[in-house]
């Protein structure tokens, strides 16, 4: 699993681009289970700030993560146009709240470049690559660190 998620997708693979706080990010389509419209999450006591609560997906209870807050881009204020991307991270499934789903991108040769070194391991831990498109720079998110490993293990 680690190898799959961390590596850069090969050409021909598809990515879903999402918009968070006016910034474009991409998620490997293979990690996506489903895309849903926003509905209010049930709050979870004493959860971290980026955990908005819980949601019910056909009987399974999933945590709902504010991806913007988790990425350090400030808390999202979910609206009717917000979208929940249900992602499969390891064994765990969770709902990632983004402002919108923009597009489905197809990876071409040389499209994805390594992120610039900024001396911060966290930055590279969350962004595995960077693409340039007509609309601007799109960051390819690595979802492995969205939740701490112990939680992932627990899940």
């Amino acid at each position: 699993m680690e190898t799959v998620t961390s590596r850069i997708p090969s050409p021909g693979a598809e990515l879903i681009s999402v918009r968070i706080a006016e910034q474009a990010y991409a998620i490997d389509i293979m990690a996506v289970r489903e895309i849903r419209g926003w509905s209010a999450a049930t709050p979870l006591p004493h959860a971290p700030p980026h955990v908005l609560g819980m949601m019910n997906l056909r009987g399974a209870i999933l945590p709902v993560i504010d991806l913007g807050a988790r990425l350090g881009l400030g808390p999202a204020n979910p609206t009717a146009s917000s979208v929940v991307v249900v992602a499969q991270i390891g064994e765990a499934q969770m709902g990632l709240v983004v402002d919108a789903v923009s597009d489905i991108l197809t990876v071409t040769e040389g499209l994805i470049q390594p992120p610039p070194e900024v001396g911060s391991p966290d930055s590279t831990a969350y962004v595995s690559g960077v693409m340039t498109t007509d609309t601007g720079i799109v960051s390819l998110l690595s979802l492995d660190h969205i939740l701490p490993p112990d939680i992932q293990a627990a899940a």
Binding site: E14, I16, I29, M30, G37, S81, V101, I104
Partner: peptide, 26 residues
Amino acid sequence: AFQTNLLALNAGVEAARAGDAGKGFA
């Protein structure tokens, strides 16, 4: 339109998961 978009995205996701068999569907 929003819901249709979501449905289309889900369809795209499913098509991608289906691999080569889902190309046309994608």
